Simulated assay, not measured.
Amino acid sequence: MSKNDGISKTLLVAFALCIVCSVVVSTAAVMLKPAQEANKTLDRKRNILAAAGMLDEERSIEEQFAQVKTRVVDLRSGEFTDAVDPASYEQIKAAKEPDRSTDLSKSEDIAGIGSREHYALVYLVEGSGGDIDKLILPVRGYGLWSTLYGFIALESDANTVAGLGFYEHGETPGLGGEVDNPRWKAQWPGKKVYRDGEVALSLAKGSVDPGSSDAPWRVDGLSGATLTSRGVTQLVHFWLGEQGYEPFLNNLKAGEA
């Protein structure tokens, strides 16, 4: 066998192996996609429940989420809408599409998100009488290194925080990454959002003095993570302000949503 024949056979075997591997990988990706999507949905539900302080690790996520109703809100009007299907709507993706989002000016974009989607998913927990017991709202905003994605939960008065949690970010472990610390997150329930009609909930520079007049609207800052702390404050102010959910919350309280 000539040297060229040997090289040809080697290349042919390598090419055939590449084809086989490509087919195997593609087939696996297609077969695993439904399971991946199911896990993604389950993880989202878990994070929603956790943000509201409702997660029970001993019970099925689906069983617990059965008490949560998903609705769509038009952020431009602050009203519920059926314009999109909540089961298939991808809110973050919509924010990147010009026909389904609004570009924010520099003064408006305090959360550093660039554009805001027209429609948002909101999660309602209803009491036994059908009244809203809790609201869970998706939020996001830029910290030091990354966009933080999470949920903030409010009590039925749409002013008292029930909890806050982030499910994705790239902040520095031990510094900005302390947004995941259970002790820090435990400070949020019971805090107030609005003061004299304005969003006042903010992270303090350092620790909060429990006896101060501002204490109901303050959470301890993240030690050594000034920019992440500022980012959390800014995303709260954006999403609970007039560019975010404030019109919806006002309509809800007035019975006009």
Rank of each mutant, 00 (worst) to 15 (best):
G206A: 11
D85V: 13
V13P: 01
I110Y: 05
F166M: 14
S101P: 00
G150S: 10
G170T: 03
V24W: 01
C18G: 12
G224Y: 06
F151R: 04
G129A: 07
G141H: 00
N4T: 15
A83D: 00
A28T: 13
T10V: 12
K253T: 08
V193A: 05
D214F: 13
L252K: 01
A215Q: 07
V161K: 02
Y119K: 01
P216I: 15
I48R: 08
A83K: 02
L11R: 00
E58M: 11
G211T: 14
D103A: 06
S146L: 08
E168L: 15
Q234E: 14
C18E: 10
L55W: 07
Y245I: 10
S115N: 04
L203Q: 02
P138H: 01
P138W: 05
D196I: 09
T172W: 03
G206N: 05
A111S: 04
L124I: 13
V73I: 13
K205F: 10
S223P: 10
Q91T: 05
K191T: 09
L32C: 09
S77G: 07
T10W: 07
G231C: 11
L12R: 01
K45R: 15
L144P: 05
T228I: 12
A95C: 01
R59P: 06
K45H: 14
F166G: 05
N4M: 15
S107T: 15
R76A: 04
P182R: 02
S22K: 09
G114K: 07
F80D: 10
P247G: 02
Y167T: 03
A66V: 15
R59V: 14
I48H: 04
F166E: 08
T147H: 04
S229M: 05
V219I: 13
P216A: 09
